[in-house]
């Protein structure tokens, strides 16, 4: 009696697992199956033609990569420095540390759309307007949605991810290493850069990759921060607008004049976006597992 109940219960939990994995499989299978039909070199390297029904998505790939690059340049070094402060200098029992840690944890869970609001109101309307008035005598240049402000907004969004992952990996470096280094007469700075950081390197990489993959997939913050549906030219200046893969998918699937005709392109765009974020995620997971094995040894 109880044995059969046991077996049913285990079977049910197995069923739930199978359902989840199957859903993942269906989503991926559907996208890969429909997406590869259209995928070609031209698709990756050409601009869209005929009202998005032909050609490729090169400008969207370019825009996404550029955005993510600018975002990482802003978020990763800044995040690493803050993490160093938290892990190496701050007193964990101090009120400042506890409150800041809580704020950062919280920021990691704030909806991305709120960052979009902040980006528009603060970066574009406040900072951008300020720059225009101070240096360009009020000519409209920085006070409009653009690559630079989208990258800044994204950087803020991914900053908590970087800080949390890097701090964790810095803390996982045994205290003996620091003590040994300090006892040998190294300064704290030398200890951090020559002993702690090299040990925590994989954690820093994981943080950066997770941030980048999150940045590549997020759309909500760039909706009004500078993503454009179609641009004839590639962005060459921080104040230019840019095309973005996620935004492309969103606009094309909601506002396309002919959904059936643009469906193949849409599927291939989704596939490219998916492959990009997955490669980043898988790299992060592999690095993390390596790190765990290394630590358990």
């Amino acid at each position: 009696m109880s044995k059969s109940f046991d077996r049913t219960f285990v079977a049910l939990t197995l069923l739930a697992t199978v359902i989840i994995v199957a859903m993942l499989g269906i989503i991926l299978g559907n996208i890969v199956y429909e997406g590869t039909a259209r995928l070609s070199w031209e698709f990756l390297s050409a601009a869209p033609r005929d009202g998005m029904r032909a050609g490729g998505i090169f400008p969207a790939i370019y825009g996404t990569v550029l955005l993510v690059l600018l975002m990482s340049i802003a978020a990763v070094p800044f995040g690493v420095v803050v993490a160093i402060y938290f892990a190496e200098y701050a007193r964990t029992e101090s009120r400042l540390y506890r409150w800041t840690r809580m704020a950062i944890n919280n920021l990691a869970g704030v909806p991305s759309i709120v960052f979009g609001l902040f980006g528009l109101g603060f970066f574009i309307q406040t900072i951008g307007r300020g720059i225009d008035q101070a240096f360009y005598s009020g000519r409209l240049l920085y006070c409009q949605p653009s690559l630079i402000w989208a990258a800044m907004t994204m950087a803020l969004l991914t900053l908590p991810v970087v800080i949390i992952t890097v701090e964790e990996s810095l803390r996982s470096v045994p205290r003996d290493y620091r003590e040994a280094s300090l006892a040998l007469g190294a300064t704290r700075l030398q200890t951090i850069f020559k002993v702690v950081l090299p040990q925590a390197w994989s954690g820093v990489m994981t943080g950066a990759i997770l941030a980048i993959s999150r940045g590549a997939g997020e759309v909500a913050p760039v909706l009004f921060a500078g993503a454009a549906y179609f641009l004839p030219l590639l962005p060459t200046h921080p104040t230019h607008q840019f095309m973005h893969m996620g935004y492309h998918v969103y606009v094309l699937s909601t506002q396309s004049p002919d959904v059936e005709a643009s469906k193949p392109i849409l599927y291939s765009t989704v596939l490219v976006l998916l492959v990009l974020t997955f490669l980043l995620n898988v790299t992060a997971i592999i690095i993390r597992n390596r790190m765990r094995q290394w630590m358990n040894r």
Binding site: T17, L24, I27, E218, G246, F278
Partner: peptide
């Protein structure tokens, strides 16, 4: 492999999930 597989689901950008639900 179950855990990494389900974590991959977390790695799918939400716009892609939205797209799949919308189209299929």
């Amino acid at each position: 492999w179950i855990k990494p597989a389900i974590e991959l689901l977390a790695g799918i950008p939400s716009v892609v999930i939205g797209f799949f639900v919308l189209i299929v």
